[in-house]
Simulated assay, not measured.
Amino acid sequence: MSKTTAPATHAPVTTASHADAIGHGNSPAAWTCVIIMLVGALVSSIAYVIASTPVFIGGLVVMVLGLLAGWAMRKAGYGVGGSKLKNSGH
């Protein structure tokens, strides 16, 4: 068995400057997704405390529905840079 090591290949390091727009996801699709998922997390948290498995699972289902709602709204043009949004520069 050989004791040689393979040379490591390093990817170039890229750094973002403060001038680069990073896109915070401020869109109706993102806000809808987050709000629905927060409601689901609240329901699941309360169900965990009161030890109710069906309600806990219901909260998880609400969180998945939040993901699906955000995805559907993004596909419908309500995501960042979507066709249904009027970009005012903010």
Rank of each mutant, 00 (worst) to 15 (best):
M1R: 15
S2I: 01
T4V: 13
T4Y: 13
T5C: 08
T5P: 07
T9H: 14
H10M: 07
H10R: 07
A11Q: 13
V13L: 09
T15K: 15
A16G: 10
S17W: 02
H18V: 09
A19F: 01
A19S: 11
A19E: 11
D20H: 09
A21D: 11
G23I: 06
G23H: 00
G23W: 02
H24Y: 05
H24N: 11
G25L: 04
G25K: 00
S27M: 06
S27H: 04
P28T: 04
P28K: 08
P28A: 04
A29D: 00
W31Q: 14
W31E: 15
V34A: 15
V34I: 14
V34D: 14
I35R: 12
I36K: 12
I36N: 12
M37Q: 06
M37D: 15
M37S: 02
V39F: 07
A41M: 08
L42Q: 01
V43T: 03
S44Q: 13
S44T: 08
S45K: 03
I46P: 10
I46F: 08
A47G: 00
V49C: 02
I50Q: 08
A51Q: 13
T53F: 09
T53W: 15
P54E: 01
F56T: 10
G58A: 14
G59Y: 03
G59V: 02
L68H: 15
L68E: 12
G70W: 03
W71N: 15
K75G: 08
A76K: 09
G77T: 04
Y78A: 01
Y78T: 04
Y78N: 01
G79W: 05
G79N: 07
G82P: 07
S83H: 05
S83L: 05
K86E: 07
N87S: 02
S88M: 10
H90R: 08
